[in-house]
Design a protein around this nucleic acid. Structure first.
Lengths: 93, 93
DNA sequence: TAAATAGTTCAAAAATATTTGAACTATTTT
DNA sequence: AAAATAGTTCAAATATTTTTGAACTATTTA
C-alpha cells in the first residue's frame, strides 16, 4: 500500500521541474552527513509546511529516501532514480 | 538574440514535466519521416494554439529542433539535449 | 508535567501553467 | 483574386501547483 519508490517518468520529471526541489537536491548532494528535513528547510529558508510538501513530492518520485528517527525525518538522495532517469547527475544538478 | 537551444536544466525538466509534451516526444520518437506540427497536432488531438504553445516550450528547452519550409514547420527531436539530461531516453520515454 | 521541537495535514490564498477562441501573417491552391 | 491551409499571437478563462497559517500528533527536554 505504501509507495516508497514511484519511478513513473512523469512523476520524476515533475518533481525535478521546480527550483525549490532542485535546491533541496543540490543541498543533499553536497552534504556529507545525514540530513534532516529541518536542517534543509533552515538552510534553504523554506517554511516547515512548504518543506513537508516538497519532501513528499520528492519521495513519491523516488528521488529521495527517508528514515524517521524519533522526532526527525532524515532524507537522502536515491541514486537509483537518477541513474534511471537523469543523465550526468553529478555533473548537471 | 535568438536562443535556439536553451539547455538550462530547469527549463528542460519543466518541458518534460507535461503529458502532452511527453506524448509529442513519443510521437516524434516513433516516426520515421519528417513531421510537421500540424501532423502531430492532428494525431494527438491537440488544438493548433495549444500545439503552438507546447512546441515553443519544447524548442526553448532544446528538446526539439525546428525547420520552417513555406507554410509548414517541421520538428524533430534533438538528441543532444537528451544525451545531456535524460538517461535511457529510448528505453524510458 | 509543561514547554519546546520536528514534522504533518487541511483548506484557503497566491502563483504558474495550460487551454481556448478570435484575429492575425504568410503561403499555397483553386 | 479568393479561398484554403499552416502556424502564431494575444488576452481571458481554466486548471494545476505552490505557499501560507492554524491546528494537530508525537517525541524530547526542562
Amino acid at each position: 500500500m505504501m509507495n516508497t519508490q514511484n519511478t513513473d517518468q512523469i512523476t520524476v520529471f515533475k518533481a525535478l521541474a521546480d527550483s525549490v526541489r532542485l535546491d533541496i537536491i543540490e543541498y543533499l548532494k553536497h552534504t556529507d552527513h545525514e540530513v534532516s528535513c529541518g536542517e534543509v528547510g533552515k538552510a534553504l529558508n523554506i517554511s516547515k509546511t512548504s518543506g513537508s510538501y516538497h519532501f513528499k513530492l520528492l519521495q513519491e518520485a523516488g528521488i529521495i529516501t527517508t528514515r524517521k528517527e524519533s522526532r526527525e525525518k532524515y532524507v537522502s538522495l536515491n541514486s537509483k532514480t537518477f541513474d534511471k532517469y537523469v543523465t550526468n547527475f553529478y555533473k548537471n544538478i
